[in-house]
């Protein structure tokens, strides 16, 4: 048991990823312990999204190793599905299924993938809708909800699968300012409950208050990683300093 807890939940060793001739990830090494909260930031096109999309194989890495909870990600469908069952993901554009009501959005994969009964799936769905504070929207369609509400539904949908890890790919970037707060609040709650999280975000307030570690990426590389205090107050690399000065001046 101790062994299991000592082994990092996510291990990335020497991961490279190419889109044609363009190298999107360069020699990524990252270990994430169980319960750790990581914020990834960096300029647009720096490979942040690509990195977390490799963790649940929405992108295939070209070489290197990605090991999730002791299972290495390979081409095998069985391994991919095993990893995806443990990894939840929240997207910038919510990606709720538009043709299904909110509660059905939360039930679908539970029934198909986790093979739970309809009744149990509905109970779990309502439980997580309460957790993200919108149980009253259960029977509406996604388009009838605000962006912030839709993103909270998307978080609840991922949680319904009882993942060990949650990946957030710029979850607040598509939201109006007044809705960002309600989504960050849900994410903060989740962090307090001990969820292992990797968040790609530019919400530096969130990074400061929630993250155990902040990672800065540029041009496909991890340039710097540090606890938030060190990261914001004493960044080492020039590129990090430049990036921080650009986003913190506003």
């Amino acid at each position: 048991m101790n062994d299991e807890n000592n082994q990092p939940l996510i291990q990335m060793h020497g991961v490279n990823k190419f889109f044609g001739a363009f190298q999107a990830l360069k020699n990524i090494n990252l270990d994430v312990r169980r319960g750790e909260r990581i914020v990834v930031c960096g300029p647009s096109g720096s490979g942040k999204s690509t990195m977390i999309r490799c963790i649940n194989r929405l992108e295939e890495h070209n070489n290197g190793h990605i090991i999730i909870d002791g299972k290495e990600l390979t081409d095998k469908v069985k391994d991919i599905n095993a990893v995806r069952r443990e990894v939840g993901m929240v997207f910038q554009s919510f990606n709720l299924f538009p043709h299904m009501t909110i509660v059905k959005n939360l039930m679908l994969a539970q029934q198909l993938v986790r093979k739970v009964s309809k009744v149990e799936a509905r109970e779990t769905a309502m439980l997580y809708l309460q957790r993200v504070k919108i149980p009253e929207q259960a029977d509406k369609y996604p388009i009838q909800l605000s962006g912030g509400q839709q993103q909270r539904v998307a978080i609840a949908r991922a949680l319904c699968m009882k993942p060990e890890i949650m990946l957030f790919d710029e979850p607040t970037s598509a939201l109006d300012p007044e809705m960002i707060h309600e989504v960050l609040e849900v994410m903060t709650d989740l962090a307090r409950d001990g969820m292992t999280m990797i968040c790609v975000t530019h919400e530096m307030g969130f990074a400061r208050s929630v993250a155990d570690r902040v990672i800065f990426m540029d041009a496909g590389e991890i340039i710097e990683e540090a606890d938030p205090k060190t990261f914001f107050n004493a960044p080492k690399s020039e590129r990090t300093k430049k990036f921080l000065s650009q986003i913190l001046t506003h």
Partner: peptide, 21 residues
């Protein structure tokens, strides 16, 4: 939308399940 199918993949749905549902 490609994003919807990615959401399905991320939830562990198979190619057949994504096509049907």
């Amino acid at each position: 939308g490609k994003g919807l199918l990615e959401a399905g993949s991320a939830l562990g749905m198979s190619a057949r399940q994504k096509f049907i549902y």
